[in-house]
Design a protein around this nucleic acid. Structure first.
Lengths: 117, 117
DNA sequence: TATGTAAATAGATGAGCGTCGATCTGGAGC
DNA sequence: GCTCCAGATCGACGCTCATCTATTTACATA
């Protein structure tokens, strides 16, 4: 209803310039967008999304040897995906001995989750 | 505290099998993960995330000619990103005449948003 | 010390992405 | 009709990604 929200071009044919003046935001959030896009990109693969899902449902540490057989993928590939998630700051890991354990760093998803809702 | 949540290998050295039995989920959500990963992937670029942000803040239709000058990118590149968002079902578009208008399809982000929180 | 094993790393390959300039499409106005 | 313009599409380029096999690393146990 409000024409303000429609954001139509202000002139029907501007002379010597773009079709309309820049009414929309210079945007406060260039860096914020990069941060959140980094998170979204890491979640933008079905395997990684399911990894995060499993890790979140088990609010503790999960052994890698539990995660690998969940997918029809080689062990290095799963390891690769876990590394991606770790680089994005979404998960953390420990390796006290022979086995490695991964867990979700819940704070990492906070900003993105809030923006999305 | 609860060992059940720790998901450690059940045996210290399994004989003739993987290090532990598959205790974690066969996972109900293979297709759901694909759906949500598709959304996340589309949001996994700073430009597209900012496009969605701008479109959401203007809960109406926004002219493309308003969006292009927001970024230091060529018009075809912005158009390409808008197409990606459209293919992901995140935005829709109309082109009644010379100008094209884009808007957010809020339902699309619902499932992903809920999963994330 | 030697052996076995879980996980990470290395290297390769084929597919996809982000970006650009150039071109095409189709509505608007003279 | 012809011209102008907004937006979409095309083709190309360099880079990143997901995946694999093969190898390496480091811990455990005998």
């Amino acid at each position: 209803m409000s024409v303000d929200l429609e954001l139509q071009p202000k002139t029907k044919r501007a002379a010597g310039g773009p079709c309309c003046e820049p009414v929309v935001y210079p945007d406060v959030q260039r860096e914020q967008a990069q941060r959140m896009a980094k998170i979204a990109k890491a979640l933008g693969d079905p395997v990684r999304l399911q990894l995060v899902d499993v890790l979140r449902k088990h609010a503790g540490k999960v052994c890698v040897c539990e995660l690998v057989p969940l997918f029809d993928l080689s062990q290095p590939t799963v390891s690769h995906h876990l590394k991606k998630l770790k680089d994005a700051g979404i998960v953390g890991s420990e390796r006290p001995g022979l086995w490695a354990y991964y867990y979700v760093k819940t704070d990492a998803l906070e900003e993105f989750s809030q923006w999305l809702s």
